[in-house]
Amino acid sequence: MSSEPENVSPNVAAIADSITKLTLIETSELVSVLKSRLNLSDMPMMPMGAMMGGMGGGAGGGAAAAEEEVKAAEPEKTEFNVKLVEINAANKVKIIREVKNLLPHLNLVTAKKFVEEAPKVIKEGISKEEAEKMVKLFEELGCKIVLE
């Protein structure tokens, strides 16, 4: 037996039939198109535990506690990767020189190729302080840098 309402207009029934025949990817595309056309934004999903906790106490108290638990569960990141995303062509020579200094195993030609093949990871698994220094140095040279 179907739990579908009996008094459904033919247009709605036809749309429902069409939607049920869509693949998962097509359904995702449909949702995106409808959000765009109807000017809808994504609503944040709240875990059920947070909703239940928020009901008993003060308004939103459970949600804040759940958010703090999630943050506490995530270990603080101690190692970072510095990725060169884009370079400033005007400072290309200086950027190549800095890459060569940071990666002593590269000669001048390989350092040039490294810079020209951006986006590339310059250093992996370094401390936050060292990563921030590198980001500052390369940003001063007009590069776009990403910390991962």
Rank of each mutant, 00 (worst) to 15 (best):
E130F: 14
H105K: 06
K21Y: 02
S32T: 00
E76C: 07
L22Q: 06
K92M: 11
D42E: 14
V115W: 08
A63N: 02
T27H: 07
F114E: 06
V109L: 03
N107D: 15
S36K: 14
D17K: 00
P10H: 15
A65C: 00
I122N: 00
P75V: 01
D17N: 09
E4K: 06
F138A: 01
L106I: 05
N81A: 12
T20F: 09
M51R: 10
G49Y: 14
E124P: 01
M43K: 15
L106R: 06
R37K: 14
P5C: 07
T27P: 04
S9T: 12
K128A: 12
V12Q: 13
E26Y: 08
A131F: 12
V12H: 04
A16D: 04
A64K: 02
F138E: 13
L137T: 08
L40W: 14
G49M: 13
V109Y: 04
F114A: 03
G58I: 10
A66P: 02
M1Q: 00
I19M: 06
G49W: 08
L137R: 00
M45T: 14
E76G: 01
L102W: 13
N7E: 09
I25E: 12
E98L: 11
G125Q: 14
S9W: 07
V93L: 12
L137P: 03
M134I: 15
M1V: 09
N101C: 00
L40K: 15
E98F: 03
V82S: 10
E76D: 08
K83A: 04
P104L: 11
E116P: 05
N101H: 11
L30C: 01
A14H: 03
L38M: 12
L24A: 09
K83V: 09
T23N: 03
L106A: 13
V12W: 03
H105R: 05
A14V: 07
V82Q: 05
F138H: 09
L147I: 12
P119C: 02
K92V: 13
E4Y: 11
E117F: 06
R97S: 09
K123E: 10
V12C: 01
N81D: 14
K21H: 01
T27K: 02
K128E: 15
D17Y: 14
I126R: 12
R37A: 07
V109H: 04
K112C: 09
L40C: 11
K120W: 07
A111H: 01
E79Y: 08
P104G: 14
S18V: 02
A90V: 03
S28K: 06
K120R: 14
G62K: 12
A118W: 07
P44F: 01
A50P: 00
P47W: 00
L38K: 10
L147M: 10
E130R: 11
G56A: 12
H105C: 03
M43R: 10
P5K: 13
